[in-house]
Amino acid sequence: MRFLFCILFSLATTVAAQETVRTNDVTTPDQGDDRSPPDARTIVEIIDQLYRSDSSYSEVAMDIVTPHWERTLEMNVWTEGTEKTFIRILSPRKERGMGTLRIGREMWNYLPKVNKVIKIPPSMMMSSWMGSDFTNDDLVKEFTFAGDYHFSLVQPEYAQDGVLYIECHPKEGRPIIWGKVMLAVREEDYLPVWQRYYDEKDNVMRVLEFSDIRALGGRRLPSVLTMIRKTEKGHKTVLHYKELKFNVDVSGDIFTLRHLRSRL
């Protein structure tokens, strides 16, 4: 789940981490026979830092598909560190101007129609964010595979050539609802192919697929992420990164309730 967080609101944690990513970026194209054998830790650290930076600005389109309706939300997203996120919805018209502000574990929604800021109560954290297949909780969680999971390279039955598989089990005491997470990454550049989230009984609960790798914010990243909930037939949410900038200027009052309450 934390991954989603990364996706929408990529954040940089440490310079060191970025170094790792960059090192990787540099080495990836260098495919030769002398490449060292894949190391699980290296891979999960790459995955963890893929979309992170000190700050970011992105323009995202979110297609939500359900058996009953389909709609697309367009939004701008600002992030700062791992703590702060600000989202402003641009379309459709009905939702235009709605905003979400997150600081740490607290979240507020702004409803322009009634000019009201609503603080999301803890009981609603598992509810859908804006009708998507992501929950409010997905925006708040800050777990990393490297820090919060035990992980190892595995060779599952469905393994394909050119893809590496990492099985992650949450460490004891972490408030993580998954029993297991499987990561699939491309052997050539360690970019994610998909992530599967399992419950305690080893049933796939949801799948996040990565596609359409392009240059975004100076990195090569999958620009389309598709979240499919296996528990709800016919439901999926597709994120398209149209624009992504890392290390932008987020000074001023972007991450304030006053800014949240301001009209577009």
Binding site: L111, V114, M130
Partner: peptide
């Protein structure tokens, strides 16, 4: 009171 819910068309229903 402000009520917030998801409408049948997927939109975010909210009103006072």
């Amino acid at each position: 009171l402000v009520l917030l819910s998801q409408a049948a068309d997927g939109s975010l229903a909210n009103d006072r």
